[in-house]
Design a protein around this nucleic acid. Structure first.
Lengths: 104, 104
DNA sequence: CAGATATATTCCTCTGAAGGTATATTTTAG
DNA sequence: CTAAAATATACCTTCAGAGGAATATATCTG
């Protein structure tokens, strides 16, 4: 989770991720569309890949990057687990209020 | 989204968030439980609060911090929206395959 | 084989942000 | 009113990491 969050926290990397929502893309096209230098783009792609957020497919001298589904599902599960925290606390509050009512 | 991710990306702040899942807590207790200095803790709490992740309740000279539900719901929604991307692409693939089949 | 193209990597610089120490601020206790 | 407790803030130092320029690597074209 930590490495996913760290990878996504960098603004340009977040832009890359949002761009790749539209579909898989090569390094050059990413760099051009986001007005980033090619080395800068490659380095961000490396960080994103090492965090598991991207998959790379090598074709000749082209590298096509695409979003990987799993880490986003992990993130969704993690974020939703907080909702469960609130709900459990609500349940405990309900229990408490019911017991309070019963003890009248 | 960016500020939420940036706030959560720092390891000690992530620890604070995980700790606060167990319930609201004062600065001193957070610092002690995580073996962090008080100023360090206060500064991280400020960043988390400014990102909307925490709410603060002042009681005398105590400040009680608690998790705020909304940003985690935003994060969940954002992460889940990627799942929708895959599904849409699957639908388009289905359409394509069906059309391919029809054109036989 | 000699470019040309696409991408990765290396090296350097510099800024932002994290951590430490000291201090300010507020509130309570005596 | 004074001291203590809890927290926030200011100031300083340090370091990871982001960006730029140059170069390495691999692949295709003629």
């Amino acid at each position: 989770m930590k490495s996913i969050l760290q990878a996504l926290a960098e603004p340009n990397r977040l832009l890359i991720v949002e761009l790749l929502r539209t579909g898989p893309m090569g390094v050059g096209e990413i760099a051009e569309r986001l007005s980033m230098s090619q080395p800068q783009t490659s380095k961000h792609l490396k960080v994103l890949s090492e965090a598991g957020l991207l998959q790379m497919e090598a074709n000749a001298n082209r590298r096509i990057y695409r979003l990987s589904a799993q880490p986003f599902q992990e993130l969704e599960a993690w974020a939703s687990s907080f909702r469960r925290d609130w709900e459990e606390r609500m349940d405990r509050l309900d229990d408490y209020l019911i017991r309070l009512q019963g003890s009248d």
